[in-house]
Design a protein around this nucleic acid. Structure first.
Length: 223
DNA sequence: CACCAGGGTGGTT
DNA sequence: AACCACCATGGT
């Protein structure tokens, strides 16, 4: 498989700095990480803005907030009943562990285990929080990275998550670069892949085609 | 009308 | 381990 550093350089040259995570502070990033699940960042951002107007992007405030109020604020992000309960639980978790600062003092494996114990936090969200909120070395394995790996495998069976972790984690040393790499993979993956001429502008290579397959295309995309 | 968006959970096979 | 239904809104 092509070294991940080469892919990183190509994506960075093509797309430039992504400046993730667009948020103010670690707790806001955690809130955003839950809100953005299965929705667009735009919808999540609208929800965060509504929470902010009520001063709820704060563990102490959010923990004691009325569930119906939280639901009303975050409705735009979808799954609002589920997410409202998860957000309030997140706030209780943070205050219960002495605040963001106390959590930040914990070693990464321990912190990751704590995050995974939260309702609504799976591997992807946990690693995103570790990477963007706590600036730890973490590899975010999401649908975009899986598709990238599958296509770079070139017809072979899709790499498992653990393989993708090793490929990225062993090839990119610094947390800020892992940060940028993940954002670039998402940015690149969101681009529609033209069936003709085979993603000719793809910075990774002509066989890559990591973009979404163009809608209604007959010959492009998958592969 | 269908499909997708910066997933996770709980249940079934 | 793989697969499934469900959660729910907003944009194309």
């Amino acid at each position: 498989m092509i070294p991940v550093a080469e892919v990183y350089r190509a994506l960075k040259a093509a797309h430039g700095p992504q400046e993730w995570w667009p948020a103010e502070g670690a707790f806001e990033i955690m809130v955003g990480a839950l809100l953005v699940q299965r929705t667009t960042w735009r919808s999540a951002e609208t929800a965060i803005a509504a929470l902010k107007t009520r001063g709820l992007v704060d563990p102490g405030r959010l923990r004691g907030a009325d569930l119906a109020v939280i639901e009303a604020c975050i409705k735009s992000a979808g799954f609002y009943r589920t997410k409202a309960a998860r957000l309030r639980n997140l706030a209780s978790f943070v205050t219960g562990h002495g605040g963001v600062g106390a959590l930040a003092a914990r070693p990464t494996p321990e912190l990751r285990a704590l995050l995974l114990g939260l309702d609504g936090v799976g591997p992807e969200t946990a690693d995103a929080i570790l990477l963007y909120a706590f600036e730890r070395r973490a590899v975010v394995v999401d649908a975009y990275l899986r598709r990238l790996g599958q296509r770079l495998a070139g017809g072979a069976s899709a790499p498992q998550d653990i393989r993708l972790r090793a490929w990225v984690g062993d090839g990119i040393a610094e947390a800020p670069d892992l940060n940028e790499f993940h954002a670039l993979v998402v940015a690149h993956g969101k681009q529609a892949c033209r069936p003709e001429p085979r993603c000719g502008e793809c910075p990774i290579g002509s066989r890559c085609r990591t973009g979404r397959k163009a809608s209604r295309s007959s010959s492009g995309g998958s592969g």
